[in-house]
C-alpha cells in the first residue's frame, strides 16, 4: 500500500471514529445520570437526520438542522417523562427491555412515516464531487464539517459539565445520586435533562453524517452498537476516553476493509466489542477501582 492510500483510509477512519465517539458520548451522558444504557440511542441519530431531511424541503439547511435537533430533544424528553421517570427503582433487566422496546417502536414509526427509502441531507458546502486535495489525499468538505462539529460539540460539553451550574449538578448526580438529592438537586430533572442532552447530541451526529453515509429508518441500530462498543472501549461513563476509543475503532474498521469483504465490516467492530467485554470490561482507560463499583 502506498502512503497516499494509507492516509485516505486514515481520514475515512477518523471521520467515522468521530461519529462513533459522539454517539458514545450520548450513551455515557445517560449512563452517568441513570446507570442505564439507552438502547434507543441510535434511534435519536436516525430521527435527527430524518427530521432534518424532511424539514430541509421547506426551510434552509441550517434552520432545518437546528429545528431537527430541537425536535429530537423534545422527543428525548418525552421518552424519559413517559417511560422512565415514574418507575420506582426498576431492575436493570427491566430498563434494558424497555429501551429495546422503545428503539423498535421508534424505528417502526419512522418506517411508517418515511418509508424504507434512503435519504441524505445535501453537503453543507460544495457537492459530493468537490474535494480538497491535501498532499495527494482527497478530503470531502463534509469530512471537515464532521470533524469540526464533533470537536466543537465535545469541547462545549466539556465546558458545560465543568463550569455551568447545570452541568455540575448533573455530575453530582452521576457520582452520587442520594448525596446530590440531599444537597437539594432534583435528580429526576437531571435525568430528563440527560436524555435531552444525549438526544440532541445524537441528532447533531445524525445531521452531520447523513450527507456521507445516508440515512434509513433502520440505520440507528448499527450506529448504536458501534457507539456502545466505543463507550465500553473507553470505559463506560468516561466521555473523553470515548473520543480516543472512537477514533481507534473508526481507524481499525477502515483498515479492516483490506482484510475482509465490506459485508463483514460490522463483524469486526462487534468482535472488538466482545473481545473487550471478555478481557477488560472496564475499558482501556478504566481502572480497577471503578470496576468494582460498577455492575457488570
Amino acid at each position: 500500500m502506498n502512503t497516499q492510500l494509507f492516509f485516505q483510509y486514515f481520514v475515512a477512519g477518523v471521520t467515522y471514529g468521530a461519529i462513533y465517539a459522539i454517539v458514545a458520548i450520548g450513551f455515557n451522558i445517560i449512563y452517568n445520570t441513570t446507570g442505564i444504557i439507552n438502547f434507543a440511542q441510535g434511534e435519536f441519530v436516525m430521527l435527527g437526520a430524518m427530521t432534518a431531511v424532511t424539514l430541509n424541503n421547506f426551510i434552509p439547511l441550517p434552520v432545518a438542522i437546528i429545528l431537527a435537533v430541537i425536535i429530537t430533544i423534545i422527543i428525548g424528553a418525552l421518552i424519559e417523562i413517559l417511560f422512565i421517570r415514574w418507575l420506582v427503582s426498576p431492575s436493570v433487566l427491566r430498563m434494558i427491555i424497555i429501551t429495546i422496546g422503545l428503539s423498535i417502536v421508534i424505528r417502526e414509526v419512522a418506517l411508517h412515516i418515511w418509508g424504507d427509502g434512503i435519504y441524505a441531507l445535501p453537503y453543507f458546502t460544495g457537492t459530493a464531487l468537490k474535494t480538497l486535495s491535501v498532499g495527494g489525499v482527497f478530503i470531502s468538505p463534509q469530512i471537515l464539517w464532521v470533524l469540526g462539529i464533533c470537536s466543537i460539540t465535545v469541547i462545549i460539553l466539556n465546558l458545560y459539565f465543568k463550569y455551568t451550574l447545570m452541568g455540575r449538578k448533573m455530575r453530582a448526580c452521576a457520582s452520587n445520586r442520594s448525596a446530590a438529592r440531599l444537597c437539594g438537586i432534583n435528580a429526576k430533572n437531571m435525568v430528563t435533562l440527560s436524555f435531552m442532552l444525549s438526544a440532541g447530541i445524537g441528532a447533531i451526529a445524525g445531521c452531520i453524517v447523513s450527507p456521507i453515509t445516508y440515512v434509513q429508518y433502520d440505520s440507528g441500530t448499527p450506529l448504536a452498537i458501534k457507539g456502545f462498543t466505543v463507550a465500553i472501549f473507553g470505559g463506560l461513563g468516561n466521555s473523553m476516553a470515548a473520543v480516543v476509543a472512537g477514533l481507534i475503532l473508526g481507524i481499525l474498521e477502515s483498515f479492516s476493509i483490506w482484510l475482509m469483504p465490506t459485508a463483514f465490516k460490522d463483524v469486526i467492530s462487534i468482535s472488538i466489542l466482545l473481545f473487550i467485554l471478555f478481557v477488560k470490561p472496564s475499558g482501556i482507560f478504566g481502572n480497577k477501582e471503578a470496576l468494582n463499583l460498577k455492575e457488570f
Partner: peptide
C-alpha cells in the same frame, strides 16, 4: 459472556446475534 451482568450481558449477546446475522447474510 456469562461472566457479565446487566447491560454488558445484553450487549454481548446482542453482538453475538448480529455477528451470526452478518455472517449468514454475507
Amino acid at each position: 459472556v456469562l461472566k457479565l451482568k446487566g447491560h454488558y450481558l445484553a450487549m454481548a449477546t446482542l453482538g453475538f446475534g448480529i455477528i451470526v446475522y452478518r455472517i449468514v447474510l454475507g
